[in-house]
Amino acid sequence: MSDNVKGVFAHLDSLLTGIARVRKAGYNDFTVTSPLPRHEIEEAIYDGMPSPVRWWTMTGGLIGGTGGFTLASLCSAVWPMALPGGKPVVSVPAFFVVTFECTVLLAGLFTLLGLLFHCRLPSLNLDIEVQDPRFSLDRFGLIVHGAGAKRAEIAKLLHDAGADEVANAEASHG
């Protein structure tokens, strides 16, 4: 039998109430699923803490920018044929485009890597409770992990918050 308790919510405000009550009761190991991103959910769980993906973006941009400029400079230095019109070997205006494009390219690719890393994707084997097709349709889920002996207490808490359905719980809360 699973050690999780799953609450299925039809309404966003009920879900937010559920999150607040679960946290207040001291349970911090839980997962919320929703068919769309809602800032209210993020605020309720992460208290405004920004995603670390931004550091990946900045790192990629810096590597791309310096890499692009270096690539253009070294290519010009090792192949002096590429000196039309007596321009300098390292020409900032001429290399600006490649520097800019490499900055954006690497920033984008690093953002993608950061997203996959922090979202733990690809991830084809999540907890069975999270794999509910209703969560990409019109229902919100609040799954409390490691409920153990307190399953009944958590189930009641979710039910009282307004969950339409509480799974893996006492029949009276279903």
Binding site: T31, V53, R54, A107, T111, G114, L115, S123
Partner: peptide, 23 residues
């Protein structure tokens, strides 16, 4: 990629989406 729409996934997704739009 096994997307589940969890709070953690949406949080990073929205940040990355904004960065992509800016890029």
């Amino acid at each position: 990629l096994g997307w589940r729409g969890t709070d953690n996934q949406w949080r990073h997704y929205m940040a990355a989406y904004g960065f992509f739009a800016a890029l």
